[in-house]
């Protein structure tokens, strides 16, 4: 009998949640979507100990992301950036300046003269997806190896988040 009552309460709870969710969904509809994909990684190449290396956002070695969504709609764009690159047991400092990001929503994205330049990758940026339903994002950065930096291959994750401005719970 106790089990039956518990199951009944659980089912009732699920029903309430179901109804609440339904109301939430239908009372705040949205139509815009955005998908982001990686085009190029940020590649510093060979780095000598003690010699900082900067990859410009204009460089072919800069990170590049492609956002696809509803033409003319606004999206929030933000990053999670690493402070260090790592290899087994070793760290190397990375720096992303407040001008290290650029975006272009034109039909023919131009990395050399983007439509939105000197963007801070540390802040959420709102920008409009182009008429071709695309928005390109570039990101440069700097690594600062120590004088006695341990040799080896270092990596770090760069995560970009994209969200339509009219999405529920947006920033």
């Amino acid at each position: 009998m106790i089990i039956r009552r518990s199951l009944a309460k659980f089912s009732l709870l699920l029903l309430v949640i179901f109804l609440a969710s339904s109301k939430l969904t239908y009372s705040q509809p949205f139509t815009d979507t955005a998908v982001v994909s990686l085009v190029n990684n940020l590649v510093f190449g060979n780095v000598l100990p003690g010699i900082p290396v900067t990859i410009s956002k204009r460089s072919t070695f800069a990170a590049e992301f492609l956002i696809q969504g509803t033409a003319g709609s606004d999206v929030f764009i933000s990053f999670t950036l690493p402070k260090y690159m790592t290899t087994t047991g070793n760290y190397m400092r990375t720096i992303f300046k407040t001008t290290d990001c650029a975006m272009d929503s034109s039909a023919t994205p131009d990395q050399a003269a983007p439509t939105l330049d000197d963007v801070s990758p540390w802040r959420t940026t709102t920008y409009t997806i182009g008429s071709n339903s695309e928005l390109t994002v570039w990101l440069g950065g700097t690594v600062v190896p120590d004088l006695v930096q341990q040799a080896g291959g270092y990596t770090a994750d760069i995560v970009i988040f994209v969200e339509p401005v009219d999405a529920p719970g947006g920033p």
Partner: peptide
Amino acid sequence: GQDAANGTATAT
């Protein structure tokens, strides 16, 4: 409607 992508920074 939301999405994320992972890139990688690499150096040797």
